[in-house]
Design a protein around this nucleic acid. Sequence first.
DNA 1: AAATTAATTTAGATTTGTCTAAATTAATTT
DNA 2: AAATTAATTTAGACAAATCTAAATTAATTT
Lengths: 221, 221
Amino acid sequence: MLNYSTSEENYIKAIFHLQQSDGNVTTNELANELKTKPASVTDMMKKLKAKKLLNYQPYQGFRLTSDGNKVALGIIRRHRLWEYFLAEKLKFTWDEVHEVAEDLEHVTNKKLIDKLDEFLGFPRVDPHGDPIPDANGKIEISKKICLTELPLNTPAIVSSVSDQSSEILELLEHKKIAIGTKLEVKKKFDFDNSMEIKIRQQPPFTISKQLSENIFVTHGS
Amino acid sequence: MLNYSTSEENYIKAIFHLQQSDGNVTTNELANELKTKPASVTDMMKKLKAKKLLNYQPYQGFRLTSDGNKVALGIIRRHRLWEYFLAEKLKFTWDEVHEVAEDLEHVTNKKLIDKLDEFLGFPRVDPHGDPIPDANGKIEISKKICLTELPLNTPAIVSSVSDQSSEILELLEHKKIAIGTKLEVKKKFDFDNSMEIKIRQQPPFTISKQLSENIFVTHGS
DNA sequence: AAATTAATTTAGATTTGTCTAAATTAATTT
DNA sequence: AAATTAATTTAGACAAATCTAAATTAATTT
């Protein structure tokens, strides 16, 4: 497999993530995501198209080709394995790992990553609950939904949290909500969109709209 | 502490290493070491001088300033800690670690490196026997000498091996010579500069000039 | 010391990734 | 449908890191 520059990798990864929700990705969207300018995005899109990683027609937005997807999954594998390493072995807190992994992910040595995977015991999800692609780029897709969309009284398991700041971490720790926590939504209040949730062996408590919007769950056993 | 580009770091590190033996480093020497062209070296020397990392007068060669030395020791610390990690935790063989560490060393996040150091148990030497600078840049200097310079019948400990190829590794494994091995030189043969060495509880055996030139030892207890 | 050779530097070009400002295309309003 | 606005692309410039070829300086020979 070929090698790509750090810059190319960052674009590929960003397109991959934006594709998940959007389908087709646009120039401005990507420029905004990468904190760069639309003109720079267009330049890079031409380059990635020439490398057959991208389907792109001027003014039409873009999607990764299946080759592009493979490359993206490789980058995401590296990122998430390093995140797991940082949290599990180096005792970084959950909200610190992303930034460091952003740099480590660009070290592209297959043997390094495969041995790291083995050393870590082939983890399935990173510290945010996101699945880690395996050496072949296979990734488990668990239909993840936002806590706001979870029906009442339906057991679910917290699988990820989107806004990765230390402020949200502090709140989650205080509320004893972590990746893997089993919970149910008991009530929803239309007035402020807060909701009451229940974790087994604890009294129910209320969380704000802002918090519930950032918690994602999978249907739990 | 400021950040330097990968390219700048590679120059700084190379100058540091060449300084150890040479004192003053020259343009051609450095170009040769980095597999680049003398003109590129001159360009970079101006840049590093402007950043006060280098004492440099045109045509006069160059040395790192004390600031330059500090930067170099930081890079070497990162390199050697990753080498230790790769060998000890990921089970890379001794001759594979250098290349991978060349990439990892450029991830400059102090917290990452200090936590890695702690995770590894604050190792003192890397898998080649070279000392690892501590978080303050302090490095243990053990007067290391080449096996060819070791007096006869003087106990010594193998501390490093310079030519890091898999060929030499194979030979050393076969001869049961490793970092930390205690040995004495029993005889030197002027004809081919081979020497007979003795490791405790083994019969003495002969090693070639080429091999002895690549083994370095410290005076052992 | 003049001539030759070696080492080093300068000048100018190239590539990658970025930018600003202008031009173009698409979408939306009236 | 023409005009306006928004999104996107093009054109041209810039900085970093490199290169080749030419010019300069230092070292060595004769």
